[in-house]
Write a protein that binds this DNA or RNA. Sequence first.
DNA 1: CTGAAAGCGCTAACAT
DNA 2: ATGTTAGCGCTTTCAG
Lengths: 330, 330
Amino acid sequence: MVKIKDVANAAGVSTATVSRVLANKPHVRREVHDRVMKVVKKLNYRPNRVAQNLRSNSSKIIALVVSDIENPFFQRVSRAVDDAAYEHGYIVMLCNTDENPVKEESCLNLLRDENVAGVILSPTRQTIERFTDIPALNMPVVIVDRHANNLEVDNVLIDNVQSAHILTSHLIEHGYQRIGGIFGVGSNTGSLRHEGFMQALKDHNIKPATELIKFANPREDDGFKTTMNLLNLESRPDAIITSNSLLAAGVLLAIRESKLTIPKDIALASFDDTTCAQLLEPAMTVIDQPTYEIGRTAAELLIKRIQDPTRSNREVVLKTKLIIRQSCGC
Amino acid sequence: MVKIKDVANAAGVSTATVSRVLANKPHVRREVHDRVMKVVKKLNYRPNRVAQNLRSNSSKIIALVVSDIENPFFQRVSRAVDDAAYEHGYIVMLCNTDENPVKEESCLNLLRDENVAGVILSPTRQTIERFTDIPALNMPVVIVDRHANNLEVDNVLIDNVQSAHILTSHLIEHGYQRIGGIFGVGSNTGSLRHEGFMQALKDHNIKPATELIKFANPREDDGFKTTMNLLNLESRPDAIITSNSLLAAGVLLAIRESKLTIPKDIALASFDDTTCAQLLEPAMTVIDQPTYEIGRTAAELLIKRIQDPTRSNREVVLKTKLIIRQSCGC
DNA sequence: CTGAAAGCGCTAACAT
DNA sequence: ATGTTAGCGCTTTCAG
């Protein structure tokens, strides 16, 4: 492993000069600069990032902490974060919290111990509630998926309440009356989307059928079980809305198991436009979130803040889109 | 930021003792041990991992380098790697190469500069061909998806050739004769699966229709375009096999665009059992790879090697499973 | 414009 | 059993 001292010796300068050259600092004679660079190339020297980090207290790693690594939403976000990071010379560390506050905290601590430059966090509900912990992290944080104005962080999100309202209203306006809803339990987005859902019912003077409104672990199997219960009710729903694509998959499976037909017997609409939502027949009506944009924006906000910690905080709200397909009979 | 010296002072011992206590080293009196731990708790001391890394030349970060972060296969693998890493106190860094050797090399170099403990790599084809570079990395490497016996690495893989053979034979044995194939270009698995495909045709005395056998970027849009070409041939295929789920999605879209029906007009079979493959109607016949197992095995092999670098290298071959569904009319 | 030297926070010989 | 001390590889004053 060739180190800065080797380069300095070979170039006949001090390590300080090599360091200056590599950091493109001023006050180095052109001739010396070139000589050093030549040696760097020749020896194939690469600075030890760990030593740089320890000495200068700054790293080129950003972290992405998500609640479910297998949710297509976060997959697309990761891709965007990775792209943006790579463009700026950062690499990304990915952590999965499984919506578990203990795991989340342990993960955040570990990241701080590694002195990462900053983190993009999709916080669990509990974390949101004791939000004051985040400043204690003492590093730049961008929060995705959740409004947090009284905090020294940037955030990027969509209007979950409004989006759920639009999706629900769409169903109502096409004649559905007994609309069931399955929302992610313990997740921020789940409860916000529930809120929009309820509001839409209210705005259309529909009395919510509480037995049709459920919270479930945002995964396929729980979506399935919950739906089976709904379908076995005496008066089953004529439509179901879910707060993410994993739940929707479970609903679909349950509907099929029950030999019902979409949209004739029951309609289905969900958040997140996945490939699968398009491929299904009938294709699914969804709220499309700008997932790639969310990830890229978060990464760029974070990198800007790392470069200028005094920058004012900002909140970026991105627009969603209702994509109307055949799963609700339109 | 409280450091080891603060703990030492508060406990009335030297930093060496604190270090010993924290590392659970022997030769520390019980009483001292307890006193130190109490101070650690009280001050909420957490060792700086960067300093530890620099000094002891060992880190608790493992890296996962994949060719396409959005491929469901790697998503499931990531989850497994993340789970295993977390259990052993490691965190994982995720890098995406887009099957681009330049990006891959830059990424690998960066990881070495960060002194990561080891990397799980799904190498690009080019890298495989100039395989000698990997030892130069000078860190433990586990290769997934590719056999590499003359190299000081562990690897975990499936039998791609055999799996493709099984899938192809299944179609042949159900009467399909003009079988098209779309394989990922530039990817290892793509060419191995192509090989198994060709072998199966040969073993069944079917003359391969070369105009039906294509290599494409393993993504939905290229799967679509390639399929449109195949379907517009004078004598179109009666079945199509793809080497991954992204390509299969494209094929499906193209078949639908062409108003053909699966499996009546054309059959379809693919690698990777995704939720979508199950949800579709007709559901898709696939080769199911044990993705979670692959990721977990890779992570465990890596961690074992990190802990014992002298361990002999090994290759783990995991079994795949043919899942027969309705997309090929059985 | 360049070099000498201190030190980031920690671990591991080597003493005692 | 515990303390002293010398670095890990780098950046950054401070002198010159």
